[in-house]
Design a protein around this nucleic acid. Sequence first.
DNA 1: TAGCACATGTAACTTGTTACATGATTAG
DNA 2: CTAATCATGTAACAAGTTACATGTGCTA
Lengths: 193, 193
Amino acid sequence: MNTLAYILLGMLAREPLSGYDLVTLLKKHFGPFWAISHTQIYPALAQLVEAGFTTYQIIEQQAKRPDKKIYQITEAGQVALRAWVESSTSPAIIRDEFLLKAYSLWVADPKHMQAIFREQIALHQERLSMHEQELDAKRTKYLAMSQGNSESLAMAELIFKYTIGYEQNYISWCNDVLHYLEQHEEAHRGEEE
Amino acid sequence: MNTLAYILLGMLAREPLSGYDLVTLLKKHFGPFWAISHTQIYPALAQLVEAGFTTYQIIEQQAKRPDKKIYQITEAGQVALRAWVESSTSPAIIRDEFLLKAYSLWVADPKHMQAIFREQIALHQERLSMHEQELDAKRTKYLAMSQGNSESLAMAELIFKYTIGYEQNYISWCNDVLHYLEQHEEAHRGEEE
DNA sequence: TAGCACATGTAACTTGTTACATGATTAG
DNA sequence: CTAATCATGTAACAAGTTACATGTGCTA
């Protein structure tokens, strides 16, 4: 079982879903965290069934679509998921190409790099707003249910909180570099004049 | 040319190095950013030579070691590196297994998860101190050179600044979750008594 | 009429990891 | 005597991406 398998188990522990549903939900809510494509998911689900961690029901489709398979987690699957969640994790490797470009920033044109950093800020700003909106939507949804179930709200907020901080740090770092590049350019211009 | 190839080019743009040197430096300075192993580097270097982006000199070794190859970047390599640095980058996918575990945290034992989050804080704290120390070492090194070359210092500081913010955000998020878990537990205990 | 939503899958390819392979010198 | 440092490489495997494959119904 690899990480993808446990992501799927984690989602199926909340509600039974088809492969298509899983991909759709993952793209919507987990896009920035863990990209997956439908080509990965079907073999992974087959593997989960083989391991006895999920079962599925076939739902016949009208129109000429492939039959839908709704997967649900088994007890063995819940045990496995819990063991994974409770196991320790070594810090992830960041693997962000943009940071590596920053490392070699000195070989490039400062003016051009200003544009590149502004673009990067815009992209992360977009992601930040997206997360803030999703968090907001979740809050109003829970309030509308008006059952005072603050626990599940706190749970749902968990990951969003992380990414919001992550994006804020990213943007503020880009701004730092941008200011440096701008000041540096002015210093040069000052020398030339 | 993939990202790894450009990382190597970026390092060779600063100074000529052997494959072994590259791995050693990468592990030391880029470990948390982009893990690489020596088994990847040798094919990648061969590819760079084939593309005309690097050349190498063979240095014969005493003792029965394989001959050392010192790679240096070519002009074509510098052009390629610069084009890569100046190209735009879409935001990276975070791919942090621990965040996904947090998503399924509700299936696990709260007490146990407190320990897991404390462990994660310790691990990131370690990484943070490591980066702070490296940054400090770099600063004193540049001051010792006493040539007032504040520009290259600022450059060297760039990536460290990012990671320090990254780790601080990580730790503060873990602490938030930890406090939530502790309060939650107290609430339960309160109910029981 | 072009594209998207639905719904599943296989095959080829790229990237990264782990295991295997060699072999002297030096520090604990 | 065990492990680490130096120094290069190949081969097998795991994970992820891209391209190929099918086919209807609805919306712009």
